[in-house]
Write a protein that binds this DNA or RNA. Structure first.
Length: 104
DNA sequence: CGTGTGACGCGAG
DNA sequence: CCTCGCGCCACAC
């Protein structure tokens, strides 16, 4: 199984209404420091993945200029019950409240 | 096998 | 607190 595939599998496991960070995903897979690679993997997302639940460690969205606008991600998260705060041009998520805690 | 790159992270200033 | 810079790992070339 490729690293990317592991990333996708992990992203799929994020429950509705929860979010995870890049470094968290990387750590869950095997390599805590491969957060960048996680982002790289999410760049070529296969359809059907809840990519909107993956954010950076600041609880902030930093996408925008790809095919998907940040507003779409924020909208999707809102529909899942995640509170989004818009501040200084970016969407912020309360990680304390919504971060996913996988329990194996 | 060497180099470059990226939806990132963290320490230093 | 904000900005800058390097490290990091997997993958494409």
């Amino acid at each position: 199984m490729n690293f990317y595939q592991q990333v996708y599998q992990m992203v799929k496991k994020i429950p509705k209404g929860k979010v995870a960070t890049y470094s968290q995903i990387a750590g869950l897979i095997s390599t805590p420091r491969a957060a960048r690679v996680v982002g790289f993997a999410l760049r070529l997302l296969p359809p059907g993945l809840p990519w909107q639940r993956v954010i950076n460690s600041h609880g902030m969205i930093s996408i925008e200029n790809l095919n998907c606008p940040k507003s779409l991600q924020a909208n999707l998260l809102k529909k899942e019950g995640v509170a989004i705060t818009f501040r200084d041009g970016n969407y912020w998520i309360d990680l304390k409240k919504y971060q996913w805690h996988p329990k194996f």
